[in-house]
Design a protein around this nucleic acid. Structure first.
Lengths: 207, 207, 207, 207
DNA sequence: CATGAATGAGATTTCATTCAT
DNA sequence: TATGAATGAAATCTCATTCAT
C-alpha cells in the first residue's frame, strides 16, 4: 500500500513494537526470534526489517521509546500537584497502580534485562547513565529540593543520595516482584518504603 | 575405581565454572559460547560436557553454587557477633567491601541477569523464590527479631516487610552500580541506606 | 492511445538504463540491488518494473543495446576511410580515445562480467557467440580482406585467425587495464600491438 | 574425528576447495550457495565454516592458492630448458595442453570472474596488481631479456610492453574460448599468436 | 578421561518482485 | 503511470551438542 500516510506507518510500526514487547516479555530478548515477532504481529519478516534495520535496533527503539514516555506522563500529572509530599505520593501510587496492568510482571523482566543488556554496550550504557543521572534522579531530587524550599522536608538532606536511594528502593522492590510475582509483598514493601522515606525526609537528623 | 582423584576432578570442574563466570560477566549468558568458555578454561569441549550436560546446566550450577556460599559465609562471621545491630552493620560492610573485588561490577550483571533468566523458568523460579523467602529474607528477619528480643529495635515492626525492603535496597543500589559503575554513589547509598534503616528500626513509630 | 509520448517513455527508460550501468560498474551485477538502481535513477520500483520485467532483463537489455551501438559507430566512421590500414588504425585509435571517457575502467569491468555471465546462459551465450563470429570478427576480417585486395597486406594470411587474434589482443589489453588501471601500460600495449599486427599483416610470411 | 593429523585436515580442506571450484565454475561465485558447496563436498555447513570463515574467504583462498601453483609449475619445468625460445614455446604449449583438462572452459570463467571480482575490492586488487606486475609480467620479461642476452632476440625491444602484450594475448584468447568453447579457434589463435610474437621478437625493427 | 572435528537445526538478514492505491 | 509498502523465499552464518579416536 504505497504512498501511505505517516500515521499509517506510525501505526504499523507501533504494532511491531508491541508484538516485540510481548515476545521479549515472554522469552527475553535473545531467546525471542524475529519469526516469533513476525508471527505475533501478523506481518512479515520484510515488513519488520523495513521498519527496523536489525533485531537489536528494534529492541533499542522499543526500550528507549517506552522510557521517554514515563517521565512525560509524570510531569504532566505533576502540573496539578503543588507539594513535594503529594508528588512523591503520586510516584508511589503510580507503582501501586502498575500492578493492575496486564503483564506488568513480565514487563518488569524486560525492563531489568534491558538495563543489563545496555550496561554491556558502551554507547547504550552512556545513554542510560546520562538518563539515569540527568533525568531519573534529577527528577526526584528536584521534588525533594522543592520540599525543602517549602519547609516540608529537613533542609540538611543529601538530596542526591536520597534520590538515588529512592530509585534503588523502587527498583529493588520491582525486581523482587519480577521474580516472585508476590503482589502483597510488592504492595507492602512500597507502603513501608514510603513511610520509611517520609520519616527520613521529615525528621531532623542529629547529624 | 576412579583413575583420577576426586580432588582433581573438583579442581577441573572449578576451573570450568570460573571461566564460565568470566565469560558470562563479559558478554552475558546467551552471548557467551561454549567455545568462549572452553578457550578461557584452556580445556576442551568434551571436558566441559563431561562435567555439565549442557550450557544451561553449567549456568545453573554456577549460579546456585555461588549463592549457597554467601550465606554460609555470613553465618560463619556471625558466630562472633552478638547484637542485631552489629550483624546488620556486618552485612552493609560486606557490600561495601565487595567493591574492592576485581570484576565486581561485572559479577553483579551476571547476578541480575540470572534472576531474570531464572524467573522465566518454572522450576528455577520456584527454587529462587523459595530461597529468597526461606533463606534470604528469613535471614534478615531473624536478625531483626533478635534485635527486638534484645530491646535494640522497636517491637512493633512488620519484620517480614522490613526484611524484604532491606534486600530491595541492597539490590536496587547494586543494580544502579551494575549500570553506572559509580562507586561513590554506591558507597554513599549504602551508608545513607543504613542510616535510614537504623533510624526506622530504632524509632518508636507512632501508629 | 498513449497518455505520454513515446519520447518521454524512451527517455525514462534510458535514465533507468544509465543508472543501472553506473550501479553495475560500481558493484557488479549481482551485488547491485534494484533499490540501488531505483535510488540512482530517482524513480521507483514500480517504474523500473514497468520498463523491465526483471533485474536480469534490465541487465540483458542494457548490455545488448550498448554493444549494438559500437559497430554502428564504426561503420559510420568508415564511410570516409578508404584503406584497410586506415580502418585498423581507426579502431586502435578508438580504444586509445576510450581512456578519456569518464568511468571507462569501470565500464570495462561491466563488459567482462557480462561476457562471463552470458557465457553461463545457454540462450545469451548463443547470441554472444553469433555476434562475436558474425559481427565482431567478421568486421575485422572484412577489413583485412579489403587490405589484401588493395595489395596493402600479405595475401597468404589466415584472415579468420588474424581477426580473432586482433580482438583477443584488444580484450586482453582491456582486461589488464580493467584490473590495474594502468593507463600508460594500456596505451603502450595498444601501440606496440598495432605495430606488431601491422608488421605481421604486411610481411611476406615464409610459409 | 578429533586430534587428527595435519594431513587429514589438509585433505578435507582440499575437498571443500575443489567442490567450491566446481560450483563456481558451474554457476559463478555469487550464484553458488554454501548449500551447493556443502552438498557437492558431501560434508556439512559447519565443516565448511570450520575451514573457511566465510564464503568470500573460501573464494579468496581457492583462487590465490591456485594461482600460486601455476608459476611454481612453470619454474620447475624451466629447469631443463635453456633457451628463451624454448621457454616461450613451453608456455604456449602449456596453454595448448590445458584444453585437454576436464572442465577447462568452466575454469577459465572462474578465472576471469575472479579478476573482475578482485578488481572491485581494494585489498584484493592491490595483491592482484602486484602479482601481475612482479610475478606474471616479470616472469616473461625475464625470459625475453635472457633471449636478448643469448642473441636469440632483437635487443631493441620494449621488454616490459612485450611481456604485457604476451599475457594480454593469452588472456584474450582464453576469454574468447571461455565464451565460445571453440577449441579450434583457441588452438589456431595460440599458434598464430606464437608465430606473430616470434616474428616480432626476432626481427630487427627499423626505427 | 580428554580431545576437537563434525553436525545441522535454526537464527538473522537480504532483496527481487508484486500490487493496492 | 507511478509509487513504495509488503512479501517471503532463500541466503549466510552460528553454535550447542555429539562422538570417534
Amino acid at each position: 500500500m504505497p504512498k501511505v500516510s505517516a500515521d499509517y506507518k506510525a501505526k504499523r510500526r507501533q504494532e511491531v513494537i508491541e508484538s516485540a514487547l510481548l515476545c521479549f516479555a515472554e522469552k527475553g530478548f535473545e531467546s525471542s526470534t524475529m519469526d516469533d515477532i513476525v508471527e505475533r504481529s501478523g506481518t512479515s519478516k520484510g515488513l519488520v526489517y523495513n521498519y527496523f534495520k536489525s533485531k537489536e535496533e528494534l529492541y533499542t527503539s522499543l526500550m528507549e521509546e517506552r522510557s521517554s514516555k514515563m517521565f512525560f506522563t509524570f510531569r504532566e500529572k505533576f502540573q496539578q500537584l503543588h507539594t513535594a509530599t503529594e508528588k512523591l505520593k503520586e510516584i508511589f501510587s503510580y507503582y501501586q497502580e502498575a500492578l493492575k496492568k496486564e503483564g506488568y510482571q513480565d514487563y518488569l523482566k524486560v525492563h531489568f534485562e534491558w538495563i543489563i543488556y545496555a550496561s554491556r554496550n558502551v554507547k547504550l550504557k552512556q545513554k542510560m547513565v546520562d538518563r539515569f543521572e540527568k533525568e531519573v534522579c534529577a527528577f526526584v531530587e528536584e521534588i525533594i529540593n522543592e520540599g525543602i524550599a517549602n519547609g516540608e522536608f529537613n533542609p540538611n538532606l543529601a538530596t542526591g543520595s536520597v534520590a538515588a536511594i529512592f530509585w534503588a528502593k523502587v527498583d529493588g522492590i520491582s525486581l523482587a516482584y519480577a521474580l516472585t510475582g508476590n503482589q502483597d509483598q510488592y504492595r507492602d514493601s512500597l507502603i513501608e518504603s514510603e513511610k520509611m522515606l517520609m520519616k527520613y525526609l521529615t525528621t531532623q537528623l542529629n547529624k
